[in-house]
Simulated scan of single mutants.
Amino acid sequence: MPFQIGRAIFCGFLATSALTTIMLANWISGLLPQIDLVRVLQGLFPINPAIGFATHVLIGSLLLGPIFGLVKGILPGSTNTVKGIAFGLMVWLACSPVTGYALLTERATIGAMLVTVVYFVAFGATLGWLWGELVTNEPETE
C-alpha cells in the first residue's frame, strides 16, 4: 500500500487534538502541574498565542503524523497503539531538551516530567490506534 500523506496528516491532527484536550482538562482541573505546550512554543519563538497554537497543531499534523507513518515499521511493539506509544515516548525524549523539561534541568520536576510524558504517550497511543483504523485498516487484536 502506498504511503497516504493525507491520512497521515489527518491522524496527526486527531492525535494532536487528543493531546490538546488532555492539556485543557489538566488546565481546568488544576490537578497536575501546568505544562502548556503552546506557551512553550510561544517562548521558543516570539509569537502570539494564536500562532503558538497553530504551530502546535501544524507540528502534530504535518510533521509528526507523516513521520510516524515512515518509521512505524521499525518501532517496537506488536500493535499500532503500542508502536504509537513508543513513538510518543521518542518524541517526548526529542522535544524535552527544546522545551526545557529535559532530565537534569532546572524546570524538570517529577510532576512536570510526568505530565509531559502523559501528554506524549496519549498523543502516540491515539496516533497509533488511528493509524490502524484509518490508514492500514488493521484493527487492534491484542
Rank of each mutant, 00 (worst) to 15 (best):
Ala15Asn: 04
Gly60Tyr: 07
Met90Trp: 01
Leu63Pro: 01
Leu104Thr: 09
Met90Asp: 05
Val135Ala: 10
Phe123Lys: 03
Phe87Val: 00
Glu106Thr: 03
Ala8His: 14
Ala25Phe: 02
Glu138Asn: 14
Leu93Ile: 11
Asn137Lys: 13
Cys95Arg: 00
Asn48Met: 07
Gly84Ala: 01
Val57Arg: 08
Lys83His: 12
Ala102Trp: 00
Gln34Tyr: 08
Phe87Ser: 01
Leu134Ala: 15
Asn80Ser: 09
Pro139Ser: 14
Ala108Asp: 04
Leu134Pro: 13
Ile74Trp: 12
Thr55Leu: 10
Ala54Asn: 06
Ser78Tyr: 12
Pro66Glu: 12
Asn137Asp: 15
Val38Lys: 04
Gly132Asn: 10
Phe123Gly: 06
Pro139Arg: 15
Lys83Ile: 11
Leu62Ile: 10
Thr141Ile: 10
Lys83Thr: 05
Gly124Trp: 02
Cys95Gln: 06
Ile28Glu: 01
Asn80Lys: 07
Trp129Cys: 11
Glu138Gly: 09
Arg7Gln: 07
Leu58Trp: 04
Val57Trp: 11
Gly69Glu: 00
Ser78Thr: 12
Leu64Pro: 03
Leu114Ala: 07
Gly43Pro: 00
Gly65Asn: 11
Thr16Leu: 07
Ser96Ile: 04
Ala50Gln: 15
Ser61Asn: 08
Thr116Lys: 02
Trp27Tyr: 04
Gly100Trp: 00
Ala15Asp: 12
Pro49Gly: 10
Glu106Asn: 11
Pro76Lys: 09
Leu89Thr: 00
Leu89Ile: 03
Met113Phe: 01
Met1Arg: 03
Val115Leu: 05
Val71Cys: 06
His56Pro: 06
Ile28Asp: 05
Gly77Trp: 01
Lys72Phe: 15
Ala50Arg: 09
Val118Asp: 04
Val135Tyr: 05
Leu127Thr: 10
Gly52Thr: 05
Leu58Lys: 06
Gly124Phe: 02
Arg107Gly: 14
Thr136His: 03
Leu75Arg: 09
Asn137Tyr: 08
Thr141Glu: 00
Thr79Cys: 03
Pro66Lys: 07
Ile85Cys: 04
Ser96Val: 04
Thr141Ser: 13
Gly69Cys: 02
Thr16Glu: 09
Arg7Tyr: 15
Val118Pro: 03
Tyr101Leu: 03
Ile67Leu: 07
Phe45Pro: 10
Asp36Ser: 06
Ala50His: 11
Leu130Arg: 07
Ala25Met: 12
Ile110Phe: 08
Phe53Gln: 15
Asn80His: 09
Met90Tyr: 07
Ser96Leu: 11
Thr79Phe: 08
Pro33Met: 06
Leu41Gln: 03
Gly84Met: 02
Thr99Ile: 02
Pro2Trp: 00
Leu114Asp: 08
Gly12Asp: 08
Thr79Met: 14
Leu127Arg: 09
Gly88Tyr: 00
Thr79His: 06
Ala54Gln: 08
Tyr101Trp: 11
Thr116Leu: 02
Glu140Pro: 13
Ala102Gly: 12
Leu62Lys: 12
Pro46Gln: 14
Leu130Ile: 07
Ile47Arg: 02
Leu93Thr: 06
Gln34Lys: 10
Cys95Asp: 10
Leu14Gln: 07
